[in-house]
């Protein structure tokens, strides 16, 4: 018989005892250890997940901050670029204005210099003309011309006394001051007498009463004539000039030349002023054209 029931019973007991022993010494401790480790692992995983969540949040914060920094940087860069452009335009405008001013001042100075040079040239020309004319008249001056000039002087002196009563009123003889007659050539006695008689006729008759009250004066009452101071002057260019206490009557080549010179200088000054005005108007036109071009350039840019 292969089945021994005592052995069967014993093996059943042995098996049940083995079940209890292995539960006690094998399965339960191992399972407890596994559970504890799994809990630790779960805790580590949970901590790792929490750390990962925290890291993700920090990453998001970092990315967000990065975006904000980038936006701020772009904004600041744009603002700086805009300010730089404005500053550049302002500097360019100031530089242009400064250049324009310098150019204008330079042009004005050049114009002034040109005008001065032109005036100098005209003046030198006139001086040369005057000198040449003076030299020519000096060379041409002789007794005949002196005689003609004397006649002309006498005519003027007569017309001065007869034509304009106000001039006569302005001529006042002062006691102690003799009229001065200047001429290039020495006047003859006849010419001197002719001048003295003319002056005496015109000037002494109103002074007759006054002269009686003053003594020792240059006017000789008895002889009814004047004492004149005759001077020889080369610069008159064969002319004659009389100066009676500030009133002056002259007829000479020098006088004509001087009048011509003054007229020429005045005409030169007027020509220079006209050319300067023309240059300024031209500059204004250029400026206006330049501003219009700048406006057009700015709009197209």
């Amino acid at each position: 018989m292969l089945i021994d029931w005592f052995t069967v019973s014993a093996q059943i007991i042995n098996f049940l005892l083995l079940v209890w022993l292995l539960k006690r010494f094998l399965y339960r401790p191992i399972q407890n250890a596994i559970d504890a480790r799994e809990q630790q692992t779960a805790k580590i995983v949970a901590d790792a997940a929490a750390l990962k969540t925290q890291a993700d949040q920090q990453l998001q914060t970092y990315v967000k901050n990065n975006q904000q920094f980038a936006e701020q940087r772009t904004s600041l860069l744009n603002e700086a670029t805009e300010q730089a452009n404005v500053e550049r335009d302002k500097l360019i405008k100031d530089a242009r204005q400064t250049t324009e001013q310098l150019r204008d001042s330079r042009m004005q100075s050049l114009e002034q210099e040109l005008t001065a040079i032109q005036q100098d040239i005209v003046k030198q020309n006139m001086d040369e003309v005057y000198a040449v004319s003076h030299q020519v008249l000096s060379d041409l001056a002789d007794e005949d011309l002196q005689q003609q000039m004397f006649k002309r002087f006498i005519q003027r002196l007569q017309s001065a006394f007869t034509g304009d009563s106000r001039q006569l009123d302005a001529i006042k003889l002062k006691p102690g001051s003799a009229p001065v007659v200047r001429s290039t050539f020495t006047l003859s006695n006849e010419q001197q007498q002719q001048i003295e008689q003319l002056l005496a006729q015109q000037l002494l008759s109103p002074l007759a009463s006054a002269t009686t009250q003053t003594a020792g004066k240059s006017v000789n009452e008895k002889s009814n004539s004047l004492h004149l101071d005759y001077q020889l002057v080369d610069e008159l260019l064969c002319g004659i000039e009389i100066n009676i206490n500030g009133w002056k009557l002259a007829w000479s080549g020098n006088n004509y030349l001087h009048t011509l010179q003054q007229s020429a200088l005045k005409l030169s000054a007027q020509s220079s002023a006209f050319s300067a005005t023309a240059v300024k108007e031209n500059e204004k036109d250029k400026k206006l054209i330049h501003e219009q071009n700048s406006t057009v350039d700015g709009e197209t840019h």
Partner: peptide
Amino acid sequence: PTGSLSTTLALALC
């Protein structure tokens, strides 16, 4: 022991 029918029968009975 598993070569014994008593053991295998005991296990089967369990």
